[in-house]
């Protein structure tokens, strides 16, 4: 399905958020996720089904002041 991942439109072979992370090669990277502007806890990724056009944000620790 078509997903907007971190601002980029991608074709992702996945039905769930955890499936999308796997398909996008995140593996065991330490990240946090949001779908359509709402935080989705890691524990909920397996059950979170995605729809065409969903906006996914995948973030990780970075430098900050």
């Amino acid at each position: 399905m078509r997903l907007i991942v971190n601002g980029a439109s991608l074709d992702v072979q996945a039905e769930t958020l955890s499936g999308a992370l796997a398909a996008l090669d995140y593996g065991d990277a330490i990240v946090a996720t949001a779908v359509n502007g709402a935080f989705v806890p890691a524990s909920a990724r397996r059950d979170r089904r995605l729809e065409d056009g969903d906006r996914i944000e995948i973030v990780a620790p970075r430098q900050g002041g």
Binding site: N6, V31, A32, A60, P61, R62, G64, G65
Partner: peptide, 21 residues
Amino acid sequence: TVSLRRESGRLREGQDFWGLI
């Protein structure tokens, strides 16, 4: 202080930073 920013599955820049911190 630290922040959260977009992470690429392939590059994973944040993982090294988090390890350093």
